[in-house]
Simulated assay, not measured.
Amino acid sequence: MLFDTHVHLNARQFKEDVEEVIARAHNKGVKQMVVVGFDNETIPLAIDIAEKHANIYAAVGWHPVDAIDYKEEHLSMLEKLSDHEKVVALGEMGLDYHWDTSPKDVQENVFRKQIQLARRVNMPIIIHNREATSDVIHILQEENAKDIGGIMHCFSGNITEMEACLEMNFYISLGGPVTFKNAKEVKEVAKVIPIDRLLIETDAPYLAPHPYRGKRNEPAFVTLVAEQIATLREMKYEELCHITTENAKKVFRINN
């Protein structure tokens, strides 16, 4: 059994066939997923999908790319939704220095407010980080994110950066890029992540693994991520599936 810890079934790319996508995932053994909502459009859809499916959960947050559109009422909305029975984390939140849509100081402000909210409601957080690793780690340290922990989504840092995240009580989640031939650094990280802190994800419809790179990703493809990591770690695929599923249930506080 597999747990895709980060998927966007609420994305427009799945508008026409989301139920078929979920069925294909189940047929591949992907029994549990977390659908991530990150703006006014995707948050209600994440909740809706989670409510319709017993083993699908939601995470809600405000994406750094959209930080420029953030208003105080959004934080109130996130706080209210944090009490929803199917919401298991806050996020994705963080910093994105690749897309020049929101000023860095605005991103930081929205990031810090969400960490503070997560501490108030005692929920794990899901971190989006693109080309901003040192600043992300610095902010997490300053805001005492260690108290709640969470997930470094689609981790792309090096071993030293991984260790800094582990020290703050974070799990390391790997996705499609670990299957790319030129992704040497993330493959090295995959080999040494403490097994009790390893998670897997697709980030579907984005970042499809090899051999689907460049095409629409979907949660069924998390099997390819698991296979690659099992090979890199020289362990049985079934064992990796079991351990990463148990890790996901632990960080999200899911008992079934």
Rank of each mutant, 00 (worst) to 15 (best):
L2S: 03
D4W: 11
H8E: 04
R12K: 15
E19T: 11
E20R: 10
V21L: 01
V21R: 01
I22R: 05
A23P: 00
K28N: 05
V34E: 01
V34F: 05
V35N: 10
G37I: 14
E41D: 12
P44R: 02
A46L: 03
A50D: 11
I56K: 07
W62Y: 13
H63L: 04
V65N: 07
D66V: 08
I68S: 04
D69F: 12
D69M: 06
E72G: 00
M77W: 13
S82M: 11
E85D: 10
V88P: 01
L90Y: 14
L90N: 10
E92C: 04
G94R: 07
D96I: 13
Y97M: 03
Y97A: 00
W99M: 09
S102T: 14
V106F: 11
Q107H: 09
E108G: 00
R112A: 05
Q116I: 06
L117P: 11
A118L: 13
A118I: 15
R120T: 05
V121K: 06
V121P: 07
N122W: 00
P124F: 02
I126M: 13
T133E: 14
H138N: 10
H138Q: 11
I139T: 12
I139S: 01
E142F: 06
N144I: 09
N158W: 04
I159Q: 08
I159R: 10
E161R: 03
A164T: 12
A164N: 15
A164M: 15
C165Q: 04
C165R: 02
Y171N: 08
I172K: 06
S173V: 12
G176T: 05
K181T: 15
A183G: 00
A183D: 02
V192M: 05
I195C: 02
D196I: 14
E201H: 10
L207K: 05
P209I: 13
K215D: 08
R216K: 14
E218C: 03
E218S: 04
V222M: 02
L224V: 05
E227M: 09
I229K: 09
R233G: 04
E238D: 15
L240F: 11
C241S: 13
H242Y: 12
T245A: 07
E246K: 09
A248L: 07
K249D: 01
K250M: 10
K250Q: 14
V251E: 06
F252Q: 02
R253G: 01
N256A: 02
